[in-house]
Design a protein around this nucleic acid. Sequence first.
DNA 1: TAATATCGTCTGCTAGACAGACGATCTGCC
DNA 2: GGCAGATCGTCTGTCTAGCAGACGATATTA
Lengths: 170, 170
Amino acid sequence: MSTVPTETRTGQHSLFGWSLAALLREWSARVDAAADDLPQGTRGYQLLTAVVHGHLPSQAALAASLGIDRTVMTYLLDAFEGCGLVERQQDPADRRARRVVATDRGLEVLAAMDARVAAAEEELLAGLEPAQRAVLRELLERAASGTGPDSDPCRTVVQATRPAEAPGTP
Amino acid sequence: MSTVPTETRTGQHSLFGWSLAALLREWSARVDAAADDLPQGTRGYQLLTAVVHGHLPSQAALAASLGIDRTVMTYLLDAFEGCGLVERQQDPADRRARRVVATDRGLEVLAAMDARVAAAEEELLAGLEPAQRAVLRELLERAASGTGPDSDPCRTVVQATRPAEAPGTP
DNA sequence: TAATATCGTCTGCTAGACAGACGATCTGCC
DNA sequence: GGCAGATCGTCTGTCTAGCAGACGATATTA
């Protein structure tokens, strides 16, 4: 805890950005350590997760979801295809686009990774009570789901329509 | 919300890492947009914040707190010193080390930035109720304050002994 | 059909990160 | 005191990841 400016919280300055960065850094390090059989470490894990669970229609959507460039997505997927973890399929509805689907092996690898990552996350959040971890996850997802490249125009509208099932609200 | 895999939460996979990354990405973009008068955008803001509020004794500690390399810290501080925002002072207790302190102008600039960043953060978290935002901030800081290079001396042991198995089983 | 936009790929280029060496300094041990 | 090793900040060189731009293929619109 030595690098944490905890004692300085007397002022009103926010540690929000620092907390996000520190937490993501540590999460990435732990996922990297657990991602031996995946190209690109943390990013590979996130890519495979997005491929399997994201239902994203194209490489461009995949790239936007992960916040990476489309040209980077090309050689990232090359590596994954070379490992036999995903496949590019031509979208019959739009023959410019490629659908990215996981192979059976990709699903296996992801399942194994998911277990290890879940353990790593629990360890990462060991300083919080289990109930607090759940609240943090929920609030993070809610906050993050309002972001994104195309979220701006109608964000307020969409979020207003979203049911306010507050998870940890007193 | 098109890039958000919200509908796929039926499974047990975690969106924790994705949420962290997406939120930090959006936060960085907004802070970058607000950091016209600061070198290095978001990172410059974080550096100045750490200088002012962190009470970190050396460049190395500063670099560790921000998760950047010590050689990068050198030219980062060069830029800030060139702008008259911070000063390097020799530590009388350890003449190898340099204390980094903000100038008056640095304090002014940071204060102005803080206000803009606070507004940007509120906007970023507009999808959450005010009480939920406070909870999220608090939990994030608590979780992040347990991380860091030297926060957990046992972690190396744990990681060394872990044979890619669930570490939560005693 | 023509004009324009989008998708995925490829090609250069460049900024940035990292490893390593270096002098200066501190610490611990003999 | 003197020596060995560690640490701090800096500098140098290398090297990679990311980005802008162009390109063919395809979709969309007029």
